[in-house]
């Protein structure tokens, strides 16, 4: 058998005619010679992304899809097919935008490793410093009660009145004022309503007792990840701090911590319990 003989005689008249017909039909869908109007701007957007090295590495697959979509949009269409051209341009445009967004996502994700390292470094340094301070704190805590007792009678009476006004609880750590979760909207660290009676009272109290250090501790319920809650609790504590600074408290007196859901005061299994756990505790330290 000789395979070459299959092609030698040509394909015959009929076949030739059919081929011409089919190619005419194939190009029939795309007769007009120029690219549809509007395709240039999509091409320009795509080129810009392709030339951005971050996008080129982080959205390689999506950029390839977008390239195919843009090439299709650039293909000339017959005069009656304006709707087809518009459709292809729309698809191409959105493909380019998808590539951009996906590229941004991956770029942000790759930056996250670095952010994490920076935060770990900051946290480590903070812990080291905290440990150094712990010794000093332990010593001062022992003498705190004695000092409180040393307040003169009249002073003590006034302080008690202020404490009652503040609805704070006297504990070993100092006066603890609990600000409930009504202070914040769900998931938000912004203080609602701008003013808050409890916070105003607290600011007044701190004005009258300017020698007291204040710890502001944020706590949350256990809904969501530990990391998210830790951040949220810290931000809420920060918001309270900002509020107090705006009301004239010296920022050096205020320390903030975010404990997330590490220190619940009630069960997280009930709505009421969770509400009690979402709080900011303000600890006004006993005078040293």
């Amino acid at each position: 058998m000789n395979p070459q003989s299959l092609f030698k005689p040509g394909l015959g008249k009929k076949t030739g005619a059919a081929l011409i017909l089919s190619s005419v039909l194939l190009t029939g869908c795309a007769m007009s010679p120029t690219s549809p109007e509007g395709s240039e701007s999509v091409r320009a957007k795509l080129t810009e992304l392709q030339q951005n090295p971050n996008m080129a590495t982080h959205a390689r697959v999506e950029l390839r899809d977008a390239e195919a979509a843009v090439e299709l949009a650039e293909r000339p269409v017959a005069s009656g097919e304006a709707a087809l051209a518009a459709h292809r341009i729309y698809m191409a445009d959105r493909s380019v935008e998808i590539a951009r967004a996906k590229g941004q996502i991956r770029l942000l994700e790759s930056e996250r490793a670095l952010l994490g390292e920076q935060r770990d470094a900051a946290r480590l340094a903070a812990r080291t410093q905290e440990a150094d301070r712990a010794h000093a704190d332990a010593a001062s805590a022992r003498s705190a009660q004695a000092q409180a007792a040393a307040l003169s009678g009249r002073e003590a009476e006034e302080l008690q009145r202020q404490i009652d006004l503040l609805e704070a609880e006297a504990t070993e750590r100092g006066l603890v004022l609990t600000l409930g979760d009504v202070l914040f909207a769900t998931g938000s660290a912004e203080i609602q309503g701008g003013t808050n009676q409890n916070l105003e009272k607290l600011a007044n109290f701190l004005r009258q007792y300017p020698d007291r250090q204040v710890l502001i501790e944020g706590h949350t319920d256990n809904v969501g990840s530990a990391l998210f809650n830790q951040r949220l609790s810290l931000q809420r504590a920060e918001s309270v701090k900002t509020f107090l600074i705006n009301r004239g408290t010296d920022s050096r007196r205020l320390s903030v911590s975010g404990y997330g859901f590490e220190r619940p005061v009630a069960s997280n299994n009930t709505a009421t319990g969770r509400q009690q756990n979402r709080r900011v505790e303000v600890v006004i330290e006993n005078r040293e």
Binding site: A101, L108, G116, A122, Q129, R231
Partner: peptide, 25 residues
């Protein structure tokens, strides 16, 4: 993309807060 940006912002903010707190302490 919006969620990823929010997470990165928060991570940055957390670090800033720790740095600030340390400086103050």
């Amino acid at each position: 993309a919006a969620k990823a940006a929010a997470i990165n912002r928060e991570m940055g903010r957390g670090t800033d807060a720790l740095d600030e707190e340390m400086r103050r302490q």
